[in-house]
Amino acid sequence: MNEPKPIDRSVTPEAGPTAPRSKIGVLLVNLGTPDGTDFGSMWRYLREFLSDPRVIELPRIIWYPILYGLVLTTRPSRSGANYAKIWNREKNESPLRTITRAQGEKLADVLAGEPEVVVDWAMRYGSPSIRSVAERLAAQGCERILALPLYPQYSATTTATANDKLFAALATMRHAPAVRTVPPYYAEPVYIEALARSIESHLATLDFQPEVVLASYHGIPKPYSDKGDPYRQHCEETTRLLRRRLGWSAERLVTTFQSRFGAQEWLQPYTDKTVEKLARDGVRSIAVVNPGFSADCIETLEEIAVEAREIFRHAGGRNFAHIPCLNDSPDGMRVIEALVRRELSGWI
């Protein structure tokens, strides 16, 4: 038998170009915002938002005549007027965009010691779009992307839609990055602690003691919940853990749901109806916190801080406080940083 020839280790392959070190993108995603308060900007934003089949589950043949024939002819003006009440006129943008940008910039600062990490932010509806930012991260050499949908509690109408849009963007890329998505964080100790500290700090600034504090979450249609969306359970667990951390009773911290749309039943109890009932029942001082929102937006700054306050006082209530969202506060940024660092494990 012929013996195999020994390998000549003095011969090495011709050196080729060294591939640049790949980067890791961290993408913060929030729900969305119109580009302006005018009719056209609101129309474009609402059309994109309300055309999402996860948001409105009706068949298009039923929903689209309603959307284009009624909703998009009347709602843009009304929504634009509400946005105008809270608009950041200095930057000519919604507070949600201002705050989400700040969250991205502050996260980039705390991750500055990880030179391979690139932080960016996007909106599910409106601009900057998830597609445009995913493409920008890929163009910067990001072969991996960690996406953090900034919704503490999971719902198909929020978390899943953000992931859908990201995956749709990847489907168009020749060289698509690998992706991880951060799971919902409704029960994370760092999140519960941040909420509790925020509540305690804000209540300490008031000249009254709220008899009841409402934990008001964005609602979803009840049929979505009945079909298996875990959102209600996640909200109730956040409230339960928050009560335990604060040492409050179920009567002191109450879960409610806001922002219902259309004629069908949504998750109850409704925030606006609860606020009115409390006042009519003789409660004179309340506060409202929004644990389902990572940043203040139209639903917190206008619907709660303005509309709910008016409902409460009109029904006989006296003292009303809106507790701000975590936003880009130190406690809020600790939550985001903790989640991102944990999910980047093994990548950096």
Rank of each mutant, 00 (worst) to 15 (best):
D272G: 04
L206Q: 06
E114G: 07
I323F: 05
P177E: 05
E90D: 08
E299K: 08
E114C: 12
L107H: 01
V26F: 03
L150D: 01
G219I: 02
C235S: 02
Y186N: 03
P189D: 01
L111R: 05
T37G: 13
G32N: 09
L203F: 06
I24M: 09
L46R: 07
Q140G: 08
P34H: 13
S259A: 05
L111D: 06
R174P: 11
S249Q: 12
F49K: 10
K165T: 08
Q233I: 14
R75T: 12
E14C: 10
K227L: 10
C142Q: 08
W63Q: 09
G36K: 11
T172F: 02
T161A: 07
V55P: 00
I130P: 05
I66C: 06
A178S: 14
G69T: 02
Y224I: 14
E303T: 04
E307C: 05
S216N: 05
E200S: 12
S259P: 04
A305F: 12
L150W: 02
Q153A: 03
Q209I: 14
K227N: 09
Q103N: 13
A147S: 05
L278W: 02
P177F: 06
L70K: 15
P4I: 00
L150T: 00
S77F: 15
S249P: 11
S249E: 15
E48N: 14
P17M: 15
V213W: 02
C325M: 08
L339V: 07
T239N: 04
V275C: 06
K5A: 00
S41Q: 15
V190M: 01
